[in-house]
Amino acid sequence: MRISTACLLVILSQVYRPGLIFLSLLASDIGSHWMQMYSTFLLGKGSYKDVKDITNWLCFKGNQMFMAYCCVACEVIQT
Rank of each mutant, 00 (worst) to 15 (best):
Y38I: 05
Q36L: 13
E75I: 12
A73G: 15
C7H: 09
C59Y: 08
W34S: 02
Q14L: 12
S24Y: 14
Y48V: 01
R2H: 09
D50V: 02
M35P: 00
M35R: 08
Y48R: 04
L20C: 05
G62I: 05
S4H: 11
I30L: 09
R2C: 04
C71Y: 10
F41L: 10
S47A: 04
M37S: 06
S4Y: 09
Y38N: 05
I11R: 13
L26V: 02
Q64D: 10
K52V: 07
I3F: 08
S32V: 07
F41R: 08
V51G: 04
C59V: 05
Q78N: 14
M67V: 10
G46E: 09
R2K: 04
I30D: 04
V10A: 07
W57S: 13
K52R: 14
F66E: 11
A6T: 05
L43A: 04
L25V: 02
C59L: 14
Q14F: 09
A68P: 02
A73E: 15
Q78K: 15
M35F: 09
N63T: 02
V10L: 12
K61G: 04
M67S: 12
I11L: 14
C7N: 14
I11A: 15
K45A: 00
L26D: 03
Q36M: 12
I30R: 05
F66R: 15
W34H: 03
Q14Y: 07
F41P: 00
T40A: 02
C70M: 13
D29Y: 04
R17L: 03
I30G: 01
A73M: 15
K52E: 12
L43K: 11
I54C: 05
C71F: 08
R17W: 02
C59A: 09
I21A: 06
G44P: 00
F41T: 01
